[in-house]
Amino acid sequence: MIAGAAVLVVAVGAAGFVLLDRGPDETIATVTAVESGDTLRVRLDGQERVLHLTNLAAPEGDECLAPEATAQLAGYAGIDSELRLDVEGTPAAEGDLTLAAFLPDGRLLSEVMAADGLGYLVIEEGDREYEWVVRAAQEDARFNAAGLFSTEVDCTIPGQVFSVSDRVEAATLVLEEESGAELLAAQRAELDALIEEAHALVDLMGTEQGGAVWDVLRASDRIGYAAQAQTAVATLELARGEVELVLNQEPTAAETDARD
């Protein structure tokens, strides 16, 4: 902890905001670049250093929401902004740093990124002082369906599952025989495509995956999403069978001519 600094925790929902009062021996770093949603370059004691935010990982590279996470961190800690670092003693003279960084208003940067759903908890070896704060913020993001937990972002796991589920009801409204063979055939094709997508989702849930969208899921989340995808498959296949039945009852052109 920074010498001479006091920590005040103010509960907000499930998570708390850690507010750090200024102390006489605080360590100030100036942001020089934002590399990802959990990593900054800072100027500390006249040196350029890489700073990893404590207890936080964020999507990176071509992962889902990686650009959004980087942009969000830049919004909180842009170039030339100052951060207060929680440093025990003198920081190592070389190499990357993994430290708690606080915004000028006293909020823990790892916490606000986790609360936005654009970062998530990782357990650090040794000092685990801020782990509970980041964990609580992550649970807030889960409850609020924010960021990596969003059902409205196509690349998240909840987004992929709910995208299929939301289309099931409309796709399974079986057209009446009077709708004609052409419309029924189009509905069958739509159901076939959706069934294939739902099957792929079921298979995906059964495989070991890595990356941010998977790391934030609990075991119970995986089980629940897999069950939801399997239910979608069963519902869609039943609807397809009904469409096929109606199509088979459609009179052929020859039969129609014969009736006329």
Results as ranks from 00 to 15, higher is better:
Gly37Pro: 07
Gly37Gln: 07
Gly37Ala: 08
Gly37Leu: 09
Asp38Tyr: 03
Asp38Glu: 12
Asp38Pro: 06
Thr39Met: 09
Thr39Leu: 09
Thr39His: 00
Thr39Tyr: 06
Thr39Val: 15
Thr39Ala: 10
Thr39Ile: 11
Leu40Ile: 09
Leu40Pro: 05
Leu40Gln: 09
Leu40Trp: 03
Arg41Ala: 10
Arg41Met: 14
Arg41Ile: 05
Arg43Ser: 12
Arg43Thr: 13
Leu44Phe: 07
Leu44Lys: 05
Leu44Gly: 05
Leu44Asn: 00
Asp45Met: 15
Asp45His: 13
Asp45Ser: 15
Asp45Trp: 13
Gly46Thr: 06
Gln47Arg: 13
Arg49Met: 08
Arg49Asn: 01
Arg49Tyr: 04
Val50Ser: 04
Leu51Ile: 02
Leu51Trp: 00
Leu51Thr: 02
His52Asn: 11
Leu53Gln: 04
Leu53Trp: 10
Leu53Met: 05
Leu53Gly: 08
Thr54Ala: 15
Asn55Cys: 14
Asn55Arg: 08
Leu56His: 07
Leu56Gly: 04
Leu56Pro: 01
Ala57Gly: 07
Ala57Asn: 14
Ala57Ile: 01
Ala58Thr: 03
Ala58Gly: 03
Ala58Ser: 15
Ala58Arg: 09
Ala58Pro: 13
Ala58Val: 09
Ala58Ile: 04
Pro59Trp: 01
Glu60Phe: 12
Gly61Phe: 00
Gly61His: 01
Gly61Ile: 03
Gly61Tyr: 00
Glu63Ser: 01
Cys64Asn: 05
Cys64Glu: 02
Cys64Thr: 10
Cys64Ala: 01
Cys64Met: 02
Leu65Gly: 08
Leu65Val: 12
Leu65Tyr: 00
Leu65Trp: 01
Ala66Pro: 07
Ala66Leu: 04
Pro67Lys: 05
Pro67Thr: 12
Pro67Val: 10
Pro67Arg: 06
Pro67Trp: 08
Glu68Gln: 12
Glu68Met: 01
Glu68Pro: 03
Glu68Asp: 13
Glu68Lys: 10
Glu68His: 03
Ala69Ile: 12
Ala69Pro: 05
Ala69Ser: 12
Thr70Met: 09
Ala71Cys: 00
Ala71Lys: 11
Ala71Asn: 12
Ala71Gln: 14
Gln72Val: 06
Gln72Ala: 14
Gln72Arg: 15
Gln72Asp: 07
Gln72Tyr: 11
Gln72Lys: 15
